[in-house]
Design a protein around this nucleic acid. Structure first.
Length: 285
DNA sequence: ACCCAGGCGATTG
DNA sequence: CAATCGCATGGG
């Protein structure tokens, strides 16, 4: 199979998009990135305005465009959220970062696993589940596994998951997968609903199953087309508190509401730029 | 040995 | 309500 070429017509940075922490199942090998999503293994790199890529199974450039939102006009989005010096600095540093379109079920399980875990740890858990149930795909000597389907994780035994070091998230993973498998909810339908409705539905259906406000917001933003969602994790809480609330301690709900009012319909983009920016600075308090 | 990691759920006051 | 705590596991 031959490497394909995609000429970018709009602003895009593969590196910032992958490395900003929104999506977990990728590896860097030399100057190539291997990305495992939507049952497809993609090998890709960016040189200036050109993407070189190859996928297995074979996909058209439409697939690449889909997962990275290449059609979205980033300049217009940035224009809308660029309200002050802080966000301007973040945008300047990470220009080209796009919110990805993730597969909803994998996204949901990913963020259920994110509770009290580091990013490498989350990735590790996801890969363990994939090795257990997924289909193997090989591309240029690199091997990965597709992400399990809801019925597969629903029927997994707790011992099976825990033996694979997936830890206390195992119960939640199984519960969430079971709810989907028994048709309590159809994730794809949520993308047609309003942000509020989709979020409320997630919180209601998965109550007590490891899905709280932050996880629900991540799923809305990263897999359900809700670009106004503004997930507030510890890093976003820090930077928002420091810059917009004079060091006071507003609730996460207050921060999220303020951010949507302040940044507008693309608040989720602002969140990702601020998250990446604050995390790169590291100091805590 | 100890603390933290992109929270959540259960338990208290 | 808000505040506090335990949670499996891995890595600094």
């Amino acid at each position: 199979m031959k490497m394909k070429v995609l000429e970018l017509e709009k602003d895009f940075s593969l590196i910032h998009t992958l490395e900003c922490g929104q999506f977990f199942r990728w590896d860097k090998v030399g100057d190539w990135y291997y990305i495992m999503c939507f049952d497809t293994l993609t090998k890709i790199r960016q040189k200036g305005n050109t993407l070189h890529y190859i996928t297995r199974p074979d996909k058209s450039s439409e697939f690449i465009s889909q997962i990275f939102r290449l059609d979205d006009d980033l300049n217009r989005i940035i224009d809308e959220i660029n309200k002050d010096d802080l966000i301007a600095s973040a945008i300047k540093r990470y220009r080209g970062l796009k919110i990805m379109r993730q597969e909803p079920f994998e996204c949901l399980i990913s963020y259920v696993c994110s509770a009290n875990s580091s990013i490498p740890n989350i990735k590790n858990k996801l890969n363990k589940m994939a090795e257990l149930f997924g289909e193997e795909i090989e591309l240029d000597g690199y091997i990965q596994h597709t992400f399990p389907k809801p019925d597969e994780l629903a029927s997994a035994s707790l011992e099976q998951l825990k033996k694979r070091k997936i830890g206390y998230h195992s119960k939640y993973i199984k519960d969430v997968a079971s709810a989907i498998n028994s048709d309590d909810i159809n994730l794809c339908e949520l993308s047609k609903m309003s942000y509020r409705d989709a979020r409320d539905k997630l919180l209601k259906v998965f109550r007590g199953k490891g899905v709280g406000e932050k996880v629900a917001d991540c799923v809305c933003l990263f897999s359900l087309e809700k670009l106004e969602a503004f997930p507030v994790d510890i890093w976003v809480e820090r930077i928002m508190r420091e810059y917009y609330f004079g060091g006071k301690k507003p609730s996460k709900k207050e921060i999220s509401q303020f951010a949507r009012d302040y940044f507008g319909n693309y608040a989720g983009y602002a969140q990702q730029y601020l998250y990446h920016f604050r995390r790169s600075q590291k100091p805590k308090n």
